[in-house]
Design a protein around this nucleic acid. Structure first.
Lengths: 276, 276
DNA sequence: CAATGCTATTCCATCCAATGAAAGAGCACT
DNA sequence: AGTGCTCTTTCATTGGATGGAATAGCATTG
């Protein structure tokens, strides 16, 4: 589609395409283009997905590459760079909890030989921080660095239960994003579930896809007593009964909490804080 | 090249502080301020370390926070955000190799119960991508996300040996950054060592600080046959003899290489490629 | 409790970095 | 030689970025 080069009377005076957006935002939007499915991108792909002219994209990318946020492959495509990963490894809620939790995740993993997950909440979703899996374990839905819904995963429910009340209400008001293999609970039942989670320190979810599994999750508390993360184990449905797993999961989560500086409550109520 | 339009301009007129630097670079320099020792910073600290006026820093930080590259703590300080960590998890040389290598690292770890390390090269240093440690293992010098010198660590030697010749020479010409607990090898001996590493697929380093340890490292190759990463094990000096560890380390490294798409050579020469 | 010293935030007139169309260069396929 | 694509460079225009100055907040001090 080539427009006749003449048209000497440009209707809109040049144009007003995309100006007005801060440069930093544009640079960040280039980073945001990368995803699980898009790990290596060409200049034109980046420009297209980030919705900016190629020269602009190129200029910004050049800066990102110079710093190390992106790296250029031999074939000219761009990927996320090690330097960015390095800085990101300083994220307290990313690598931070992960570092502290890993030994306990490993213990749990070695004993059970099933998937062990660690997740934190970011806005309205859970972000998977760590996953330990034996090579022959059942298929699992999420990858490290990926996102999962709050309402329909075990870690999500734990994180949601630990969020302040106002946030919970906001989430409950929204229509549930339906998740393959998980029956969407009606609002009332979610409320009851969240209350159970707070009381017992355990959330369970049964999935039928991508495979039939049961997840058991428990909260990890920080020094302020708020829920900083959630730890869970995922086993094939019908293998170990969930109530057998629960104590191990809770124990692991408590161990991590302690290492985060959390003072365990004397009370039997596991969850007395952080109800905004 | 711009010719000075007119020299009549007032000499410094107020000042010419820092202008002229691309905004993106400034934003990135804010991220670069974070380090192992500086994980949570105030606005003024960020402005000071990144060498820019507070209002400028605040404006940029506001964009970074809005996107999720930074997060603001209750006390007003800023930390690296989960969103950045999430994007960084797409880094092929960061989480990428890590994801593929982890099961094999774990095997090695479970068998030996000693530190297992995974590192890639970034410019003139090795970046630690993963480290598995039992809680009671000997003290180790590096943390995940941290950097280590190429000339005086086992993984570093492996990565250096796998770099193109021109780069190797550049490194060898530089004075060795002396590393606590490691005897700096003279240039000639480093050359010989690198050649040995290429021949045997094994590098060894003995340290005396922070504790007396022996490291044994082996290269991980990608599909193109170049050294993508290095895997090593760190044991207390005097425990398992290094030559007993070597086969296990090499086997683990080869397993990872295979999963990266590397076609093992039929020849006994483990290392025939990537000599620029 | 005024004074001091710090950090965080808002404001705004100035100006330079950012912008993107256009054109050129390179490459693959026809 | 022609077509269609992506990547790169150039450059005149302009709007976002800039940072000093002022304000607000908040401890600590005399």
């Amino acid at each position: 589609m080539t427009i006749p080069p003449e048209t000497d009377a440009p209707p809109v005076r040049g144009k007003r395409p995309k100006q007005g957006e801060p440069v930093v935002d544009r640079a960040l939007s280039l980073l945001a283009v990368f995803s699980d499915r898009r790990r290596a991108l060409t200049l034109s792909e980046l420009a297209r997905y980030a919705d900016m002219p190629a020269p602009t994209a190129l200029r910004l990318i050049a800066r990102l590459v110079a710093w190390g946020a992106l790296e250029r492959l031999d074939d000219g495509r761009y990927v996320v760079g090690v330097r960015l990963w390095e800085v990101a490894s300083l994220s307290p809620r990313g690598h931070g909890v992960r570092e502290i939790a890993l030994p306990y995740l490993e213990d749990l993993f070695e004993v059970t030989r099933h998937h062990v997950l660690l997740a934190v909440r970011d806005n309205e979703q859970a972000v998977l921080i760590e996953r330990l899996s034996s090579r022959d374990a059942t298929e699992v839905a999420y990858r490290v660095g990926g996102r999962a819904p709050l309402r329909s995963t075990a870690v999500g429910l734990v994180l949601l239960a630990g969020a302040d009340h106002q946030f919970q209400e906001a989430i409950l008001r929204k229509p549930p994003e339906d998740e393959p293999g998980v029956a969407a609970l009606p609002e009332g039942q979610v409320r009851r579930t969240l209350s159970d989670v707070r009381r017992t320190g355990i959330a369970m979810i049964r999935r039928t896809a991508p495979s039939r599994t049961v997840s058991v999750a428990s909260p990890i508390f920080d020094a302020q007593g708020s829920v900083a993360a959630a730890l869970s184990i995922v086993v094939p449905d019908g293998s170990t009964p969930p109530n057998v797993l629960a104590p191990a999961v809770r124990a692991a989560a408590r161990a991590v909490s302690r290492n985060l500086g959390h003072q365990a409550e004397v009370s039997s109520d596991v969850w007395t804080h952080s109800q905004g």
